[in-house]
Design a protein around this nucleic acid. Structure first.
Lengths: 207, 207
DNA sequence: CCAGCGCAGTGACCAAAGTCGCTTCCTGCT
DNA sequence: AGCAGGAAGCGACTTTGGTCACTGCGCTGG
């Protein structure tokens, strides 16, 4: 049994699971909590690669090719990790041929995700990326009210900037601008989307 | 045997193997030739995701998760493809558990590659990306001469721009600028790298 | 020979992105 | 109450990236 060979680890919010470049010796599975995978630049900027929650695995790749971690991972809240060593997992895969196939679909999703990030970085403006993030949030966490779709920003401007590959100020500015254009209402972290159509229109406008 | 179930296809230079969004029904392996994987934006810009040559496979992902192709692929020269249907390949994987593990390392390399592209797009300027491309070319194809390391650009400015996620003019301009700074000599597609140190220095300067 | 085409060079512009320096607000702590 | 630190607002500015419109070159197929 695989569980028998696994180790449980506990991380508190803000704690690093591992850093880019470190050698990797096993698979991490999130039992509870939330993890952010990201790259750091020399000048201190960050680019988020993915956010992962309970049930998902992190850093599948280095487990299989034996290379170092391609990115760093940090716990965003109290997080419990199940760790399985490379050797154990490899052996397990050979015994259960359907497992690596399953892993491949997980990795596939990850790959699609990365391609999506590349597409956004190389084809869209920050304004568009921010809008599409806001629409995603509105969809998943928004409540419909008389004024529009309301929700809270899930993180600081700095954090959002990291996800979009930019800096704090541009989040500020673009939110303002959208408010000035009457598409949003912003009050601290409280967002009210007033004109979904208008936002979608901006996305469609292939500038 | 797997080969028995495979189909050979021939593509001439410029021909599309498949397009982004199409459903995928099998694995493509390059027997001979060269293939470019890329994304296209609504406004017609392209972003190259990878270049693949003989022996490599293309579009492993959709084979496993059943989704559509995440990008388009085009043959850059006369190319011969061995095509294996999804069903056959899946069956083969279950019979030979070491195969999906092998595929995982291939996919891993691809993932690392994509992460590298994201890193470049989000942390570096076009100037830096161009320099690092030139250095790579100098390393792999350059001949040392009295004047420096000489080589030919492998493609048109337009094509290089696609790889770096930008437009033709910026390639032109940046090459000029590097020449004006005395780091390069450019004569049509002939490049002479005169100062490798200087180029590396620019890369290290975390602006 | 030359018309047409694809590629490259180039200047004038414009818009987006990023930087700096500061202010303001809020929150928690002493 | 007063202070320290983090988060956000904001204006002024610079740099980078991108667009447009054009020119010029060199090759190829009538």
């Amino acid at each position: 049994m695989l569980a028998a060979r696994s180790v449980r680890k506990l991380f508190s919010a803000g704690e690093l699971l591992f850093s880019e470049g470190e050698p990797c010796n096993g698979l991490h599975i999130i039992a509870r909590g939330k993890v952010r995978l990201f790259k750091t630049s020399v000048s201190g900027r960050e680019q988020v690669l993915s956010l992962n929650v309970s049930g998902e695995s992190v850093a599948e790749i280095p487990v299989f090719d034996g290379g170092p971690y391609p990115a760093s991972a940090v716990a965003l809240e109290e997080t419990e990790i199940v760790f399985i060593s490379r050797r154990d997992f490899n052996a397990y895969c050979l015994e259960h041929p359907e497992v690596p196939l399953k892993v491949l679909t997980v990795v596939g999703a990850r790959l699609r995700n990365l391609v999506g990030i590349i597409e956004e970085l190389s084809f869209t403006t920050i304004r568009q990326r921010l809008i599409s993030l806001l629409l995603k949030l509105a969809q998943s966490e928004g409540r419909k009210t008389a004024r529009g779709i309301e929700f809270q920003l899930p993180a600081s401007h700095q954090e959002l900037a990291n996800q979009l590959g930019t800096v704090r100020e541009l989040i500020s500015r673009n939110l303002m601008r959208l408010q000035a254009e009457g598409l949003l209402d912003v009050d601290a972290r409280q967002i009210v989307v007033k004109d979904v159509e208008g936002l979608n229109a901006i996305l469609d406008t292939a500038s």
